[in-house]
Design a protein around this nucleic acid. Structure first.
Lengths: 115, 115
DNA sequence: TAATATACTTAGTATTACAAGATATATGAG
DNA sequence: CTCATATATCTTGTAATACTAAGTATATTA
């Protein structure tokens, strides 16, 4: 029932969060899904069908670049994504937008004006 | 440029914020737009083309009811919206979803785990 | 009289989270 | 050795919604 709200509220956030996770080194899709789940304590349970389009978008927009890992022994092939300089700039902007929106919501919900 | 993020991030929030504003009494469209702007300190600048569909949705979903004001003197006719009991319940749920998402985002952005 | 503010309505567009289905390899249990 | 499960990626289609843009109409002010 409130799945609807949750889904909508996540719009625009996931791209920012994925970029953020890429800040401490290149990561591949499956790994991102795991870390997102752990770090958010089960709040952001990404489906692969959600994540991969996000990664393609980031790449199309020049915010991340990808590279297939060389097959080391029997390792399965993995596509590693790395944040670009432009991606870092975009992340900074997006975080600022998030903070502003978050503060705006707080002001209305709590009807208080934290500095 | 980061308009895109902002627009997306607002999804699902506006409905909650409108409901919240209706908590302290019936209000009409234009008034909601003004209060949203003031209370959020210019973060949520609703266009009328954004607000009215939200109000219709709230009404369709039984979360609010509307009533045209009687013409008092020369006053323009206004359609007042009032939150319903069901709307109050939905608001409570939505606020809970917001808090969870907000906390999840914080955990990833700050990589800290506030209690 | 004209411009601006108030007040509501509607049609169409762009974006994105997700469901569902597909493909393929690696690993562990029986 | 076989089968189930975990790992790993990709694609198509759908639903939901913020916004643009256009329209209608009245009230107020310069």
């Amino acid at each position: 029932m409130n799945d609807k709200y949750e889904k909508q509220m996540k719009k625009g956030l996931l791209e920012m969060l994925v970029l953020k996770l890429l800040c401490d080194g290149p990561k591949y899709g499956y790994q991102i899904i795991q870390e997102m789940k752990e770090k958010s304590e089960d709040t952001f349970l990404l489906k692969d069908g959600t994540l991969y389009p996000i990664l393609y978008r980031l790449e199309d927009d020049g915010l991340a670049v990808s590279e297939w890992s060389e097959a080391e022994g029997r390792q399965v092939s993995r596509k590693y994504y790395k944040i670009t300089h432009q991606g870092q700039l975009a992340l900074d902007e997006t975080e600022a937008v998030w903070r502003r929106i978050s503060r705006g919501v707080s002001r209305i919900l709590e009807d208080t004006y934290p500095q």
